[in-house]
């Protein structure tokens, strides 16, 4: 869609240890928006195995664990029993920090993909 950070983009690593303990308590710090292009409620997110050894706590750690398999914000919100807005902000930070990445999705659903959806739903 645009040239904004997406899968494969590697933001600067967060090597500075600013308040690694305090930060999780701030959770979202009152923010409601973290903008990552292509990050929708259903977008698949995945964490690298290496992220498991990152100094993350609480929700951030759980998200990195859960995202060893691709998961969406909706899945994470349900698993963590946390509001979508909160999960969006924490996941957004993890993306910025390079622990989580947005999996590429087709920009537009092809006709054959829509037909596949139809046929699979019919066969449920």
């Amino acid at each position: 869609m645009t040239d904004e950070p997406r899968a494969g983009h590697r933001p600067p690593p967060s090597t500075y240890d600013e308040d690694p303990v305090v930060r999780p308590f701030m959770l979202t710090g009152g923010r409601t928006q973290t903008v990552h292009d292509g990050l929708r409620i259903e977008t698949q997110l995945r964490a690298a195995p290496a992220a498991l050894s990152a100094p993350l706590r609480f929700e951030a750690r759980r998200i990195v664990e859960l995202c060893q398999q691709p998961r969406s914000l909706a899945d994470l919100s349900a698993a963590l029993r946390a509001p979508l807005g909160v999960v969006r902000v924490i996941a957004g930070d993890l993306i910025t920090e390079g622990y989580l990445r947005i999996e590429q999705q087709p920009a537009e659903l092809s006709i054959s993909l829509i037909e596949r959806i139809r046929d699979r739903v019919r066969a449920l």
Partner: peptide, 13 residues
Amino acid sequence: FGRITLDDALLLY
């Protein structure tokens, strides 16, 4: 929020 696995490469929310 509901989820349906349509096949191993296709998820419907």
